[in-house]
Amino acid sequence: MLDDLRIERYARHILLREVGGVGQEKILSSTVRIDGLSEAGCWAATYLVLAGVGRLHLADPRPVPAGGLLPLLPAAEEGSPRDQVAVTALASLNPDVVSSVEPAGPEDREYELVRIAVGGRDEDYVVATGNGRAVGGWTAVGSPCPRCIGDALRSAEGVAGSGPAPALAGSVAASEILAAILQPAARPTGLRIHRLGEAAPLPACTHGGAA
């Protein structure tokens, strides 16, 4: 049951028809893993912590690049492991969330890892699960075009003022994870699940970009 403090903290979530008190309890009891703290991954982690995901496991020992990455990895932490810096930054956002550094690599994970495709390369993905349930990937049909988003994310890596694409991708990833936690049987149509190891090619660009 939600105590008074949490009712106050999550009041605006509870107001949402899709969440309510029962949904917020599900979010608080869930575990999410994110592999890959590109800027999109950092945004996804931030949104999930603010949503109240109970446990957040982060795996990305790559060094923080020069200039840092919004919104979690400051330039002053250049060279430090991304996951460790992110855990420290996230601790101040929500006292209900326990975030931790996990070993990189999905091979030995108990989680059902699913790729949120925001590009075709390993360094540009967000991987997560919610309570062991599959999380949807980028839409394979229509917009936003996953190739264009992926290119935008790759060009944005490490560039100050990189624009809204990583934040958008992180927002979509976090939304998909929350939808999977709240309504696993009512997934939005048109979303495609990319499992790790699956050689699922991205669809052709619908905006005249590279195929």
Partner: peptide, 13 residues
């Protein structure tokens, strides 16, 4: 507001 409806909504749940 908004705790008025929040509390009622939790009661209904």
């Amino acid at each position: 507001c908004p705790m008025t409806w929040v509390r009622v909504k939790l009661g209904l749940e």
